[in-house]
Design a protein around this nucleic acid. Sequence first.
DNA 1: TTGAAAGCGCTAACAG
DNA 2: CTGTTAGCGCTTTCAA
Lengths: 347, 347
Amino acid sequence: MGGAGRGRRVTIADVASHAQVSTTAVSKVLRNAYGVSTAMRERVRAAIDELGYRPHHAARAMRGRTFTIGVLLPHINNPFFAEILDGLMEQLGGTDYQAIIVQGGRDDTSERRAIDALVDRQVDGILMVVPLSSKARLEEVAAGTPTVVLGPHERSALYDSVHGDDEAGAELAVGHLIALGHRRVAHLGQQDLGHGRPATMLHAIRERTYRRVMAEHGLADEIAVAATAYTEEGGRRGAHELLARDPRPTAIFAGADLAAFGALAALHEAGLSVPADVSLAGYDNTRAAGLAHLALTTVDQDGTLMGRTAARLLLERVAGGRASSVRFSVTPSLVVRRSTGPPQDAA
Amino acid sequence: MGGAGRGRRVTIADVASHAQVSTTAVSKVLRNAYGVSTAMRERVRAAIDELGYRPHHAARAMRGRTFTIGVLLPHINNPFFAEILDGLMEQLGGTDYQAIIVQGGRDDTSERRAIDALVDRQVDGILMVVPLSSKARLEEVAAGTPTVVLGPHERSALYDSVHGDDEAGAELAVGHLIALGHRRVAHLGQQDLGHGRPATMLHAIRERTYRRVMAEHGLADEIAVAATAYTEEGGRRGAHELLARDPRPTAIFAGADLAAFGALAALHEAGLSVPADVSLAGYDNTRAAGLAHLALTTVDQDGTLMGRTAARLLLERVAGGRASSVRFSVTPSLVVRRSTGPPQDAA
DNA sequence: TTGAAAGCGCTAACAG
DNA sequence: CTGTTAGCGCTTTCAA
């Protein structure tokens, strides 16, 4: 059943009769609405405390707010998402809003189901982190529920966007490797999963930028991409694929730290040392990348700030204070550690 | 507001009139209840599809089920939790149930808030993963909502328990290190955060077992514990603390892989090599532990199975098919990799 | 400023 | 097997 044990639950009717006022009055006090005298407010509050009243969420949802922010995460195994969530939770801390998370999964069918679950539960706002769904689908959702999308570089009139400047980030990483003297720089990317809008997905932008920067340095012929997944296993598989080429790359730019860790495993398995034989750069600057024994060169992009900002924008939308949509871009920076160095023959 | 855009939302009344039946009939079809002819069922289903009807979650919650399973996770940064969740999602896959996740956080105040959020939203069942709250508090929740608790070794009449055999696991790890010839085996543990029931918490059991096994081998004087947190940073700090002792340990048993990774960083910073100078064992067998360049010896305990089982037990409870409570224990096994070896002087 | 009353969409008795 | 109807607890006009 409903409450925290036996017995009928306490309703606003109970509070009302206990405080000798109407249910309307109680409702108003609960919502901090206008038109309640201080005296009445006090009486009601006292009654609420005495009776241990808790609002019935579902009943509330029937007419008004749910005080819930829904968060769509592709999968919780990526530590970068944890940072985003930390930022969101921090920003939500002072408010009455509660975050609930659903996992979108690998394909856009299961993601759709997860988003529907949020919409069905009438969350007051939705944060979609790196969604696979098409822009049309996102706008469909955004038309009904305040929405912020984190990841894709899209501008929509219906939702706010928060993302890192993936072009700048990828350029930093690839540029760094080339500046060290590398020519055969390969890339570990992610396969397109959603069938919606590859061009604006962050993995596509990182890959495209890699290709552009290579070409700009006259290295178009050296372009080598393995498109797997931004996971440890994906990185490992992709790196093996890249290392099998002849001649093999002297540097690898992984689109995500997780993939870079997988690449480290592959390099180890191939008997190659980092950075002497192969340099390796990642993306996200996850906690693990900073650990001394890994010391991964990577692109930092402050996930906490992104999460905080997304939450702020969402709360603004929920409060109804903003009609126009907004785009927030975080500028990344390169963190050079010991996983990158000049190529052997140039040393 | 509510729906997927403009216009009034489709209700069972619309479906009923469109299918020329009563709302009761529609409701029954939706819930797969008894007493509906096949013909009517067909008609109703057709009407549902044609009108694009979706059940109103809040209205449903007022009277019946929410078809929601709430999951409490301490924090999403631990990859072992991702495995548990994978198991849960897999088991929920074929059903109408949706999982929503809330983050409990560091202290039991914030955990309480997260659990309340689940209870308030009238989830049909709750899975609490390694909760900090007291047993009394858990039972309070379990009295009102079907509950499964994953982690603590408690038996309660009100909820089901799923946990690894942490005694066996810790014994495997510590025994392995001692068998290799180590005497100064230290332990990286977790500080007690909740003020409820330290004795049954898995980190307490791992630590207690470490102490017991050491004593049983006549190594009581060599016991050394750093109680920080099961995180990378916690492991790093704790390991530095342990390594500062004189004489320093020749082996470290970390209560979690995440802490072991932090310890690897600390060892690297101290200029010590693994396993030549110090052997290191972890717990959980996370994906990363298996990567070739880390090759962490660790205790495997099949988080997916735990998640699957927890979900199964929860669904049984939700369906009301079981009165008695159940305890499910997963037997761990040791995965020996290259991070452990005989001590230097014994080699 | 206050309160009475009409629903929100659904489920579950209860009648037919 | 099918339909009628009374609420679930809350918010929200609309009067007083």
